[in-house]
Design a protein around this nucleic acid. Structure first.
Ligand code: NAD
Ligand code: NAD
Lengths: 213, 213
DNA sequence: ATGCGCTTGTGAAATTGGTCACAATGTAGG
DNA sequence: CCTACATTGTGACCAATTTCACAAGCGCAT
């Protein structure tokens, strides 16, 4: 029950929650650390250790109440309020994200979409009109945006991150392949598909001795 | 040299390579571990340690030759050959990936796109025609596919992973929010945007005491 | 109430990954 | 050739994370 939580723990908690929600729909009343571990691809001891960072939620001999644990994990992950998100970059990735219904269902509201392409500015995406990127500060400030998603080319990402942070954003989800330099209080998550693919081709090359013939 | 390589090292190598390629275009002849560290968002000692897993590529007192190190890193990551990739799921994420020119530029060729939606099957995406998912085994086997990208709903992912593996795939890039169970020799990379967002809202909640008011 | 079987919660040990400090080794310049 | 200097490569240390092992707690049957 202490302070500094490993990032890996937080990510696993997110997985546990997803598994719990499936079980909840199926009506499973309780679950053991062993069962949760299987769903989350880890070990029972790891599950218990992860949870023990935040308190003790189980009943010995019985396991965890599915709805109760799910609720506690939602608290932990900050899913009890709705988060306001701005999407910067209305390109291929941006539109895939925008149309993905699961984010809203999970508490992330895309309150604005910005772009710098005159062709795109003014277009309507459902209820949202694509705005010029010049309005970034306005939007972040006036709509009290917490999280900025950057789905723009790498060259633009650093500047846009700085602008979003200056206007008050506290977290950034970055799809561009650059390391962002931001103040320490701002949190950044990276999604870099090239890194993932390269990690895979590294693993294949190491392990199975090269490409299939 | 050459024990088991940490995953984090492999990912950083991918970042170093990207930085080196930018420097290469700019004509920078050599680079120090210090400079590389700045680009990659890490420390000079970490850069040297990462590289030392694979050999010694630098010149003391001088640094690393940019084109030479880039070439060595490409070898390490398995980028000296072209990889054949099959994309399963021609939805929002699938189409964003397919249209992304950088993958092909980096050696990943999408040799087939599969879906199970009769509306989509038969459509042409550039030079590729979307095929019925029943042809998965055929495609993986006949086209000697190494990597399968799963951009399908979570319910379908496990079965499709098994089918791809049975037909010979050795790595999977999975966008669905489920842990895949595959044989040990198969490598899986996960991209889970919900986890990323939840890690961010966790960090904000912990750190800055909740959402902006 | 008591005992049994099951499962949690948690210190302690083991492992893994990261940092530090510096000898080794190169370049450049007299 | 010798000295001054920069920067690598690495073993020894340190920190973080995972695994282990087990006492303690709970429900149920008797
Ligand atoms: N599409 C993919 O599969 C994929 C994969 C990996 C990484 N990425 C990365 O994600 C990012 C976005 O990729 P994409 O494929 O969606 O690109 P895209 O070109 O389809 O979209 C980028 C959008 O950003 C806009 N934009 C450019 N500069 C801008 C600025 N200064 N301010 C505001 N908007 C601006 C463009 O007008 C465009 O609409 C890129 O960094 C790319 O490298 C994409
Ligand atoms: N779009 C996003 O931003 C986003 C974000 C996070 C996660 N994801 C995940 O990525 C995956 C794909 O998301 P999407 O938004 O592209 O969904 P989508 O619904 O747009 O596309 C899914 C595609 O898969 C096809 N499909 C379904 N079952 C199939 C099967 N058995 N075999 C072959 N094809 C099948 C569908 O016909 C559809 O074309 C999902 O698991 C989703 O949860 C998407």
């Amino acid at each position: 029950m202490n302070r500094r939580i490993p990032d890996s723990t937080v990510r696993r908690i997110s997985h546990y929650l997803r598994a719990l929600e499936v079980m909840g729909v199926q009506g499973t009343p309780t679950v053991s650390s062993e069962e949760l571990a299987q769903q989350g691809g880890t070990t029972a001891a790891q599950v218990r250790k992860d949870l023990s960072h935040f308190g003790s939620f189980g009943k010995r001999g019985l396991g965890y109440s599915v709805p109760e644990l799910a609720s506690r994990l939602r608290d932990i992950l900050g899913l009890t309020c709705r988060w306001r998100v701005v999407l910067v970059g209305a390109g291929r990735i941006g539109s895939a994200l925008f149309e993905y219904p699961h984010f809203a269902r999970r508490g992330y509201d895309c309150v604005a979409v910005l772009d710098n392409d005159p062709e795109k500015i003014g277009m309507s995406w459902g209820p949202v009109r694509i705005r010029p990127v010049e309005e970034l500060e306005l939007v972040v400030d006036a709509l009290k945006v917490d999280i900025a998603i950057l789905a723009v080319p790498a060259e633009a990402a650093q500047t846009l991150a700085e602008r979003a942070v200056a206007a008050g954003a506290r977290a950034i989800l970055n799809f561009a392949a650059v390391q962002l330099r931001v103040p320490a209080h701002v949190h950044v998550a990276y999604v870099n598909l090239v890194v993932e693919l390269e990690a895979l081709s590294f693993a294949i090359t190491q392990n199975g001795k090269g490409r299939r013939k």
